[in-house]
Design a protein around this nucleic acid. Structure first.
Lengths: 211, 211
DNA sequence: GATACGACAGACCGGTCAGTCGGTAGGTAA
DNA sequence: TTACCTACCGACTGACCGGTCTGTCGTATC
């Protein structure tokens, strides 16, 4: 094979990958806006600037396209989280930083986890389990690592790190990320509230009625 | 109109209402198990012991049937919550009781809120907004009332009752109700953890590093 | 310039499903 | 007996959608 041939093949491959990426991006936008059943392959193809035939040239089925989109996103999320876990500092600051990084992602990507929960039932068997685990457990497991260290360092009271990590995720997800957008103040203010509640509780502090 | 005629009409009406109720019950079971798009009107009709024609005799469309099912459920939930809000006792006990009552509902009914979040996008415009408000806000608003009283009585530290009610809902929903079933201990134990965390926080208590 | 190949187009097919419509059964009214 | 009403049946339709298949076109090799 000559050098020119190699270059041509590389160009063709690059073009093909660019189209795949465009299709995945179009799929992500549409799936987030609507849902699996309401998004047709024609719509995705149209938004990506190809036809249905072109789409099926790159992906064997609508379902596999969906999975490819998810795996693509998971990869980026994992990198984000690994970075945060490896960071220095005390437990509270690291949790705050991780949460801030998470919230600074583009809206569309933040919504993907919700998307997966919503549409997960189109899959069955082990494929489904794999996706559920990958998405649901990615965040809590990373947080659990931070919290475990917080307990070891005495920054947190001894307790089950699993319960604590789930609790923290719950607070972040619901109070900051999901419902409360239309009800409460800024994201930063809500993050402060959540950290306050998580570390210090809501009980009246002056009277100090512990137990 | 004779007395017999009246009785006959009443009997006919009762029969009709029983069929409607059967259809709604069948729809609930199926919609919870699958989702809106994957449940066909034939399946619902079959499960309710009527044909599709019969179903369309009682409901003008699949969408309206779905809405009827939701309104039917909301009605029962509202009664449950009103009861809890009106109860006596301190803040912590009332929240515990309300949560326990909520969790004691049949599994199928507890899953309805999730269902609505999952399928909400089939609706548009004001119908959608109405449903979102009705479902998302029902729980926090009732809890907010209890928390507000807790703050007034000094059982809780002064703070924004809205943030606190959303936080409590978050903890209950995620730690107890949703994700953690396969990971953590019994419902009762998890409820204790949540109450503990909510009222006392996760910070190390011996060293007491508040501020 | 003949051959080959990969990317993509777009018409088409098979199946599915919400909704319709003409009917029937069984009771009531005149 | 006729006319009517309500609940319900079930065959049917029309639209839509996932997936296929037969090209076409640009590029590259020989």
């Amino acid at each position: 094979m000559t050098r020119d041939a190699t270059r041509t093949l590389a160009r063709s491959k690059a073009r093909s990958e660019a189209t795949s990426a465009r299709i995945i991006a179009a799929a992500r936008t549409l799936f987030v806006a609507k849902n699996y059943a309401d998004v047709t392959t024609d719509m995705i193809a149209g938004a990506a600037g190809v036809t249905k035939g072109g789409l099926y040239h790159h992906f064997p089925s609508k379902e596999q396209l969906y999975i490819s989109m998810i795996l693509d996103d998971l990869d980026r999320k994992r990198r984000l989280f690994e970075q945060a876990v490896a960071a220095q500092g005390n437990c509270r600051d690291r949790l705050a930083k991780l949460t801030r990084d998470f919230l600074e992602q583009p809206d569309e990507e933040r919504k993907l986890a919700r998307l997966v929960r919503r549409d997960i039932n189109i899959f069955t068997g082990e494929e489904r389990d794999r996706l559920v685990r990958a998405y649901q457990l990615a965040l809590p497991e990373q947080i659990e690592a931070i919290i475990r260290e917080g307990i070891e360092d005495g920054e947190l009271a001894p307790g089950d790190p699993r319960i604590l990590s789930w609790s923290f995720v719950a607070l972040v997800e619901v109070v900051i990320g999901r419902y409360a957008n239309h009800v409460l103040g800024s994201t930063e203010a809500r993050l402060d509230h959540v950290l306050e509640l998580f570390f210090d509780g809501a009980g009246a502090k002056p009277t100090g009625g512990t137990e």
